[in-house]
Amino acid sequence: MRILPLGRAATVATMSLLAFGGVAVLAAAPAYALADSKVTVVHGIPGQPVDVYVNGEKTIPNFQPGKVAGPLSLPAGSYDIALTKPGDPVGDALLTVEDAAVPGDANVSLVAHLNEGGKPVLTPFANDTSKLAAGEARLIVRHTAAAPAVDIRAGGKPVFEGVTNGKEGKTDLAAGSVSADVVLAGTDTRVLGPTDLNLAEGTATIVYAVGSADDKTLDIVSQSIKGLHSAPGGVPSGNGGRADGNGTLPWYGVGVAGILLAVFGLTRLVTARR
C-alpha cells in the first residue's frame, strides 16, 4: 500500500463562512445571538496518523485514519493549529494554520482526505440540519476518495449519479435499512460495498467514500446527526466512525476541531518545512 503523507505538497481547501450554503444568513445576526459551532472532523487519509496541536499544546495524539471526532461545541475565537507526524515536535509540522478565526452557530464537517489526484486536502461541508417529516431520514453521500466520478446506488438503483471528488449527493427518504454500494459512473463496476445502512427516523446519515482506488485502500466512514425530528427535540449533534463501528473521540476532541478553523474566515496557511 502506498502511503501518502500530509507532506509539503499538501493542498488545503480554505474558504470563508459565507461559502457554506444556507449559513450566509448568520452573518446578519447579532453577535450575541450566535451559539457555539457544532464541529465534526473526519480523517479519511489512509496510512497517515497525526498529532494535533492547538496553540502549541499537543491536544490529540495519534489521530488515526478512518476515525471521526465529534460532535464538538467550539466557541468563537482565534487559534493556531498544527498537524505533525506522531511524536514530531510542533516545529516540524506537516501543516500549520495561524490565527484562524471561527464564528459561531454553524454545523460543519471537515474532512481530511485525498483529492482525485491523490493529494491530501481538507474539505469543509455544511451539514443540512433542517427538520425531517415524520417517518423520514436523510441520506448524504460524500465523494472524498482518490477516484473518478461515481454513482451511488441504494437497493441496486442509482440514487446519486456522476458524483465527483469533493461533492455530495443528498436526499430525504423513508426511514429503514438500505443496502448501498458505489459504482463507477454510468457502469455496474462496483468500487465500494454493498454496505447495509440503518437510516433511523429523524437522523441524517452521512457516508464518506475515502482512500485511493489505485492503491486499493477505498473504504467507507460514516457519521450521523440526530435530533432532526419535526417535533421539538434535542439539539442537532452527531456521532460516527467506520461503517462497521463508532470511532468517536472524547472531550479532547476540542483540539482536533481546531482543524476546522482553517475553513473559516481568511486564514493564512503555512506549509511545513521539512
Rank of each mutant, 00 (worst) to 15 (best):
K58I: 08
I259C: 03
Q48Y: 07
I81S: 01
G156Q: 12
Y53C: 06
L184M: 13
N239Y: 09
D88I: 01
V221Y: 06
R274I: 10
S130D: 15
L95F: 10
V183F: 07
A137P: 04
V111K: 00
H113W: 06
V207T: 15
H113F: 05
G135W: 07
A9C: 04
D214Y: 00
T195A: 14
L95D: 03
A27W: 11
V254G: 06
D188L: 10
G21Q: 10
G186H: 11
Q223N: 14
L260Q: 07
K216N: 14
W251M: 07
T40E: 04
A209R: 00
L4K: 09
I3Y: 01
S222I: 10
G104Y: 06
M15Y: 01
R190L: 09
I225S: 11
A133R: 12
V12Q: 00
H229K: 15
T84K: 06
L269V: 14
G193L: 04
A82Y: 01
R190H: 11
T59G: 10
D36R: 07
S16V: 08
D188A: 14
V178T: 13
R242L: 12
K167G: 10
V39S: 02
L199I: 06
A200Q: 13
G47C: 07
A185R: 04
I225Y: 00
V102L: 10
L197C: 05
S109Y: 00
R2V: 12
G155D: 14
L4M: 13
E161Y: 03
W251T: 14
A101S: 11
S230K: 15
S78L: 10
G233N: 11
Y32L: 13
V178D: 00
D181H: 11
D196Q: 13
G166H: 05
P61Q: 09
H113P: 01
D99S: 12
T14P: 00
T40N: 08
M1Q: 09
P232T: 09
A82R: 08
P61W: 06
V12Y: 01
G211N: 08
P158W: 06
W251Y: 11
Y32H: 12
L122T: 09
T164I: 14
L94W: 08
V90D: 04
A101T: 10
G70Q: 05
G238K: 02
E57Y: 06
D36E: 13
R142N: 05
A31I: 12
P103R: 04
D188Q: 14
L114E: 04
